[in-house]
Design a protein around this nucleic acid. Structure first.
Length: 300
DNA sequence: AAGTCTGTCAACCGCGCGGCG
DNA sequence: GCGCCGCGCGGTTGACAGACT
């Protein structure tokens, strides 16, 4: 037996709110408050709506001091920092942006900010999308042109300083099967990227040996990847996981955040901030180096 | 000009959690 | 300790408008 529905779905209105409904709800809450019971509220307010719907409408639209419209660079920065630190905890992120709702921020992230960070200007979106489609058909999980093959000796990368190769941000390198032992590669990461988002000054080591070091301070990422038999692992997820481990502790970390806990990780100097600085063009290319032990795919 | 595609955003849905009896 | 209930959250959907072909 499933959970009992919160209201009689067949007999409540759904869809967009009319100005009259807005007025009714607003007037009622301003006069009587929510009474701590959203389920009973619509009936009392004379609305034929589900309590959850009323709550959402109030929180996201009707309550005082709601900010609508464009996000500022400062807000972008905060969202970016917090997303990099705690992921999609929209309510926590919203709590740091007065007047913004979690729904607003979530929408903004999904529709605009993510694309901005991924560095696809509108003029390149089309090409990017076509490529993405093409590669999805090929069952490649990442939307970038692939320089593929078994790189036991990638001559153009090996030992190259400031290589012209540009690793795509979302999946700079993906490692699969066992690897010939470790040549050091140096590449650049082009575009604003999720990689950059993990950029407060940090270093870490992981217990499983998959990561010996990540240091962000100089905008250089040095690390060693041993895939340990794991299937296809993107640099992005690697960094994300390591960052999570670092921030939360290994394993069953507490997921209770408050801003005091988060603050130390929201660095005013992190890479993410450079995305919004004056010199965007220079900020979007970073040198990284990495040492591999196996077959790799390079994206550029 | 008409049809199709894409982006945006309000709203919905389902689930987990905590309070309470 | 258990089950019920409401709240809050994050993911997803769908309507709509504007852009594109």
């Amino acid at each position: 037996m499933g959970r009992a529905p919160c209201c009689d779905k067949a007999n409540v209105k759904k869809g967009p709110w009319s100005p009259e409904e807005d007025r009714q709800l607003k007037e009622y809450i301003e006069k009587y408050g929510t009474g701590g019971n959203w389920i009973a509220l619509p009936h009392k307010a004379g609305l034929n709506r589900c309590g959850k719907s009323c709550r959402l409408r109030w929180l996201n639209y009707l309550r005082p001091n709601i900010k609508h419209g464009d996000f500022t660079d400062d807000e972008d920065r905060i969202i970016c920092n917090l997303y990099a630190t705690i992921g999609s905890r929209w309510s926590i992120i919203a709590s740091q942006l007065p007047g913004r709702t979690d729904n607003d921020i979530k929408n903004y992230w999904n529709t605009k900010l993510k694309k901005k960070l991924l560095g696809f200007p509108p003029s390149q979106r089309k090409a990017h999308q076509q490529l993405q489609k093409q590669q999805q058909q090929q069952l490649f999980p990442y939307p970038f042109e692939i320089r593929t093959g078994s790189f036991s000796s990638p001559p153009s990368l090996e030992g190259v300083q400031n290589s012209q190769y540009l690793l795509s941000p979302m999946a700079a390198a993906t490692f699969s099967s066992p690897l010939p032992e470790g040549s050091m590669h140096q590449c650049q990461v082009k575009d604003s990227s999720s990689l950059l988002m993990f950029g407060s000054e940090q270093s870490c080591s992981s217990s499983d040996g998959s990561c010996t070091q990540i240091s962000y301070g100089s905008n250089v990422v040095d690390y060693e990847l041993c895939n340990g038999g794991q299937p296809m692992r993107s640099l992005e997820s690697f960094l994300y996981e390591e960052t999570q481990k670092l921030l939360l502790g290994d394993g069953e970390a507490s997921l209770d955040y408050n801003i005091e806990e988060i603050k130390p990780f929201v660095s005013p100097n992190n890479w993410c901030n450079s995305l919004f600085g004056d010199d965007l063009s220079s900020a979007t290319t970073k040198d990284i180096s990495f040492k591999t032990t196996g077959k790799a795919m390079y994206y550029y």
